[in-house]
């Protein structure tokens, strides 16, 4: 069984800041991290590989600059993935969800015999251009999103979806696309043995030409035209002292604002 995990490398959002009044966002110096939910997808796929002998796990990352994602896919190989593909093209800088889906589809088709494609659900960290569920439609595969658990039996992947109000269990025939929304475990750390072993694992860099996708076919239907910092939120009022006095003052303040 061949499992593909898409890893998106994004600027560490906790460290992205814009000064008040700024109109340009420069993230060049911001450290890169793997999108949190893609990392969870990788860990879930590694667990599937642990349980299902013969599973080949391939990580794919799209980037305008292969050098920027090389360390990330190497780490995935050290964690236990078998093979890595970086798709490099300058056009990825602001590729919208539709453009990315077309590329991922081409990657999956070029790899061939993929049973499961998985990655993190979009929109949680507010990454600039999230990858949505479009690729499932392009491949004509069923899509299940917001997965928090995945288990493979034969040709079926059993998925638990964690959604508003509760959990839903879904059995999906593979090949399928599963996007990950939650997972109650931290991604594993690479072992020394894993790091050494990763050096001998295949890591290829493909271009859009290798995939027979033309950059202009990516056509961005939504374009970023401006960026701005959010309005600043200053420190508020601190109330200290005896609990009774603190509560009295706090409630008086909340009453003044009609919260109580």
């Amino acid at each position: 069984m061949r499992v593909v995990i898409s890893l998106k490398v994004v600027p560490d959002y906790e460290q992205v800041r814009m000064a008040q009044g700024a109109t340009v966002l420069d993230v060049a110096q911001v450290p890169r991290v793997v999108y949190t939910f893609d990392e969870l997808a990788l860990e879930m796929a590694l667990r599937i590989k642990d349980k299902n002998a013969g599973t080949e796990l391939i990580v794919v990352s799209m980037s305008p600059d292969a050098a920027k994602v090389r360390e990330v896919v190497k780490k995935a190989l050290a964690m236990g993935a078998d093979r890595a593909v970086i798709v490099e093209d300058a056009a990825f800088g602001d590729a919208d969800s539709w453009a990315q889906a077309q590329v991922l589809k081409a990657v999956v088709e070029k790899l061939g015999e993929v049973s499961l494609l998985s990655y993190g659900i979009p929109g949680i960290q507010g990454e600039a251009f999230p990858l949505g569920v479009e690729v499932g439609h392009l491949l004509n595969w069923p899509v299940v999103s917001y997965a928090s658990e995945m288990a493979v039996t034969g040709d079926t992947v059993a998925v638990v979806r964690h959604i508003e109000g509760g959990k839903q269990s879904v059995d999906v025939p593979m090949p399928a696309v599963v996007t990950i929304g939650k997972f109650q475990a931290d991604p594993r750390l690479p072992t020394f043995k894993g790091i050494m072993g990763a050096k001998n694992k295949p890591l290829e860099v493909w271009s859009l030409a290798d995939l027979a996708v033309t950059p202009d076919a990516l056509g961005h239907s939504v374009r970023q035209t401006a960026v701005a910092p959010p309005s600043a939120r200053g420190a508020g009022r601190k109330i200290e002292g005896d609990a009774v006095d603190v509560a009295k003052e706090a409630i008086a303040s909340l009453r003044g604002r009609q919260f109580v």
Partner: peptide
């Protein structure tokens, strides 16, 4: 307009 990078930046987008 949508917040990006955990709300640290507001991004303005235009449709085609």
């Amino acid at each position: 307009v949508r917040p990006i990078f955990g709300g640290n930046v507001l991004s303005t987008l235009q449709s085609t």
